[in-house]
Amino acid sequence: MSQETPAARNIPALLAALHAEKRSGAVLVSGTPGGVIHVRDGMVVGMETPGAPGVEVLLLKSHRITEDDWTAARATGTDPARLGLELVAQGLLGARELEVIGQAALFDAAFALALTSPDGWEMTAPRPLLDTGAAIPPDRLVTENTRRIRLLSNERGATARFARDRPDPAPAARDPQRTARLSPRHRTLLTAADGRRTPRDIAFTLGRGLFAVMLDLRDLLALGLLQSPSVTLAGRPSTAPRTPLSASTATPQPSATPLPRRKP
């Protein structure tokens, strides 16, 4: 099997070519964010990017799996790729649930990567990946991304801007009567949106998908409970080496001239 990267004008075209040739390997994407796309026999079996939470974050940050159980599963000396299956074997996670989470993470990473144009890509030998049983034909990733972008704003640029936004609670968010009428999921999201976090940051904080968070944020924006953040910044102190102040400058001298007075 040749390890040559097929010529392609973009990532979807590359994945389609790898699918047609039933190739296996890892596509390293550089960009902001970049990522790794794992391909096995032409199917996309995993994707990792700093732009969206992976399987580990989804399991741990949502408290679905405890830190202790995760560490214990790792300590069994199992191949890291089989870590998910180890959790299933220990009865901590359903095999189908693992597949759901694996698919969710894969589509979410594909969405995060589709929001910006990559700087470049290269194909390498297969890389280690936490196996979840997910295997998606690349054309499904494309149709799902189109659906997602259309659902949010109909246009990639606007969706990408929304993904960089740092929504802040609106005054209405302090009204307990308004927040009492939210689902627990939306209420949790409202406390995580603090004007500093992007949807991606919130997704990592809560252990939820980026796209799911963006949809729920859109609900809260529509209800007037969130708004775009305001910027308030203060000055800073000097870092110059400190010298003791002399007595004359330490105590201000009363001014000889009286303060100016306004005349009517």
Partner: peptide, 9 residues
Amino acid sequence: LDGVTGLSY
């Protein structure tokens, strides 16, 4: 389906 994103598993 995913109840939030509508993704079909």
